[in-house]
């Protein structure tokens, strides 16, 4: 398993805690948290991360705007991004893929799904 530093972005403290615990159980111990896209961009400017997990619906800066910002930043554009959201409408998924997410998980997710998707994204990066 690769030693990844992961940034988990979600406005729900409950969801952030669930994601952190799920990642730890899957063997990813180094996980930082951000409460929305704006907070995440600030953290990405001051710290180095290998992987991003982001929600879509967040105040201040939503996930889609955040993904677009990451993909247009020369220093960050190569970072693998996994979107974890309640949005399951076909058009939303297509929009997220177009914006540059590497993979997409619909909430509620199983621990197996999140571990499997990280492995897939890393393998294809």
């Amino acid at each position: 398993m690769p030693d990844l530093k992961i940034l988990a972005v979600d406005d729900s403290p409950t969801m952030r805690r669930i994601i952190v615990n799920t990642l730890k159980r899957a063997g990813y111990e180094d996980v930082a948290e951000a409460s929305d896209g704006k907070d995440a961009l600030a953290k990405l400017k001051t710290d180095k991360f290998d992987f991003i997990i982001t929600d879509w619906n967040m105040p201040e800066m939503d996930g889609l705007t955040f993904v677009t910002a990451v993909r247009s930043d020369p220093d960050l554009k190569g970072l693998p991004i996994l979107m974890v959201t309640t949005r399951s409408v076909k058009e939303d998924i297509m929009q997220a893929i177009k914006a540059g997410v590497n993979n997409y998980i619909v909430k509620p997710f199983t621990p197996e799904t999140i571990a499997e998707k990280i492995t897939q994204v890393i393998a294809s990066a």
């Binding site: 201040e60 959201t85 399951s88």
Partner: peptide, 22 residues
């Protein structure tokens, strides 16, 4: 306050099948 939500958010019991569709 500014609200961020998915109007179609749903706690699907069989979420494995749902993810397979995605």
């Amino acid at each position: 306050k500014s609200r961020a939500f998915d109007p179609n958010a749903n706690y699907a019991v069989d979420h494995t099948t749902h993810q397979q569709d995605v």
